[in-house]
């Protein structure tokens, strides 16, 4: 049982990193990313392929995955920086699907649907088999802490302030002379780098990655985490990631009580449950369980709150 808990905690850790990253991109700047699965997959395959096919040591491959994520994020952001947020959603979703398609079809490199087997694990030879999962969990949590720390630093920095100004109203931000485009690309890239790192951690943890894991569904789980927790609030999304995982895993036990459901139906029910909950939360608590503390920037003399908050 404790092995199970450790494994769950590790998965929650992956979710937390992804959620922190999404919170940087969307929660703080309002840049919509539905291609989370794509960046996650990119990180996983980068690190996996670098160790398996290029023979890199895992200690180099994993950071390299983060760098690949940053590069891909910068590219996507540069391409779509001028888009309206709903178009950005479509572009990023398409990006995620493209990455999955490549992983699926370029099977001479990625092994396609058979899955890529990855033997390399960081610090594996220094610990025995029973303590290693705890060590891995500690590593994941260290990355969570690092990502959290960086995200909080950004949030509190002058750049973070101008980012939120962008989110509220990018016309205003431009008038204020903020370097909107550069900040947006930077933040999107940093977020994508976190996602890449999460992918690498995932890859060396499960040691067998295949394209079907990186379905757009991943994006929904992470969006759910951020929305449940409260967009813009890094503490809230840690809670959110935990809740989402609890729902995903908790529903697994339903199978023990309801025996006419097979595994396929159970997993479908789980997704339906997540979807319904997401809709309900957006409806009744659109600002999440732990809303971001109200932030004010140069309000217009006419007063009145910004339009983004007008919904309630």
């Amino acid at each position: 049982m404790s092995a199970y808990l450790i494994s769950m905690a590790t998965y929650v850790g992956f979710f937390m990193i992804l959620a922190i990253a999404l919170n940087l991109q969307w929660g703080m700047t309002g840049m919509v990313n539905f291609g989370i699965a794509g960046f996650y997959a990119l990180g996983a395959y980068s690190s996996g392929l670098l160790t398996v096919k290029a023979g890199w040591p895992v200690g180099f491959a994993m950071p390299a995955a983060a760098v690949v994520g940053i590069a891909a994020g910068a590219l996507v952001a540069l391409l779509s920086i001028r888009l309206r947020e709903d178009f950005l959603a479509i572009v990023t979703l398409g990006f995620g699907e493209l990455i999955r398609l490549i992983a699926l079809n370029e099977d001479e490199i990625t092994e396609g649907p058979r899955g890529l087997k990855i033997d390399a694990r960081p610090f594996a030879d220094m610990f025995d088999r029973t303590t290693y999962p705890i060590v891995y969990l500690a590593m994941v949590l260290a990355v969570v802490a690092l990502a959290f720390f960086i995200a909080e630093r950004i949030r509190r920095s002058p750049m973070g302030r101008s980012l939120r100004a962008i989110r509220e109203d990018d016309v205003v931000a431009e008038v204020l002379g903020k370097n909107v485009l550069r900040h947006r690309v930077q933040v999107f890239a940093i977020g994508a780098g976190f996602m890449g790192a999460a992918g690498a951690l995932y890859a060396h943890y499960v040691q067998n990655i295949s394209p079907e894991v990186f379905m757009p569904m991943v994006a929904i789980f992470i969006w759910m985490s951020v929305i449940v927790g409260g967009a813009g609030n890094n503490w809230g999304l840690l809670l959110g990631a935990g809740i989402v995982m609890a729902i995903l895993e908790g529903s697994r036990f339903m199978g023990d009580f309801i025996d006419f459901l097979d595994a396929e139906k159970l997993s479908a029910i789980r997704v339906i449950l997540i979807g319904v909950l997401l809709i309900i939360i957006l409806r009744v608590r659109p600002r999440g369980l732990m809303p971001e503390p109200r932030f004010r920037y140069g309000r217009s003399p006419g007063g009145g709150s910004s339009t983004a908050d007008a919904q309630s």
Binding site: V32, E85, D86, A89, I272, I274, V276
Partner: peptide, 14 residues
């Protein structure tokens, strides 16, 4: 639009 978009993705999954 983003809220509605997230809702619509949730709906398609449902």
């Amino acid at each position: 639009p983003v809220t509605l978009l997230v809702v619509s993705i949730a709906l398609t999954l449902i």
